[in-house]
């Protein structure tokens, strides 16, 4: 009897499980129909790394300081840069990241002193060959000329203003020195008599 009883009670537990499954079958489907539906990406989403295009300057701000190259654990960043005529400081002329090696850790973004690296929002990027080296300066090529011209103009203006200010200060100093010398000459006896009286 207990053998049949255990069969019956065992079967009942199976029905409990099936009941729950039946309830879930009738419920709402939770499948996201990707790729027909685009996924919602959070702001902090990590995709490949790209250079920021700042609004004010119209281009990126990489000064080829090599901090990201030094901190990358996967040694996947290659940068070449140097001084450009007419601009203060260095600027990158070549910036490549090998995304076959990159582990998307974000240390380069954290360490960049000019905040010019950021995450992109590409969720469906796929490499079709083994080579997966991205040229990060390519999207900024169109703006580079414009940026350099504007930058040169700004810096030339600043340099001119600075030179003018320096000249004004020097002129004021020279005038002050000249007037002091003139007042010294005007009263030499006054100082002589006082010194005689003291001694």
């Amino acid at each position: 009897m207990s053998y049949l009883g255990s069969i019956f009670s065992g079967f009942k537990t199976l029905l409990t499980g099936l009941g729950i499954t039946g309830k879930e079958i009738g419920g709402k489907s939770v499948t996201e129909l990707y790729p027909h539906v685009e996924p919602e990406l959070p702001e902090a989403f990590r995709s490949v790394i790209q250079l920021v295009r700042f609004e004010e300057s119209g281009s990126h701000d990489c000064v080829a300081c090599m901090q990201c190259v030094k901190i990358c654990p996967s040694t996947c960043i290659t940068i070449e840069g140097g001084k450009i005529e007419g601009i203060k400081g260095k600027r990158a002329s070549e910036f490549e990241i090998d995304f076959a090696l990159c582990s998307l850790c974000g240390l380069c973004i954290d360490t960049c002193p000019t905040d010019t690296l950021e995450w992109a929002n590409i969720y469906d990027d796929a490499g079709q060959e083994r080579e997966w080296v991205y040229d990060l300066l390519k999207p900024h090529e169109a703006f580079e000329e414009q940026y350099l011209t504007t930058r040169r103009a700004i810096e030339a203006k600043e340099a001119a203003e600075k030179a003018a200010k320096k000249a004004a200060v020097a002129k004021a100093k020279a005038e002050k020195a000249a007037s002091e010398a003139a007042s010294q000459e005007a009263s030499p006896e006054k100082s002589d008599t006082t010194s005689e009286a003291d001694s």
């Binding site: 959070p42 902090a44 989403f45 850790c105 240390l107």
Partner: peptide, 24 residues
């Protein structure tokens, strides 16, 4: 995973900690 992706950006291999705190 969606909740964690909101704050860290990744679903499985987070590099969220930094020395002295968290990154975001």
């Amino acid at each position: 995973l969606s909740i964690l992706e909101r704050v860290t950006g990744s679903r499985l291999t987070y590099s969220y900690g930094r020395f002295g705190g968290v990154s975001q």
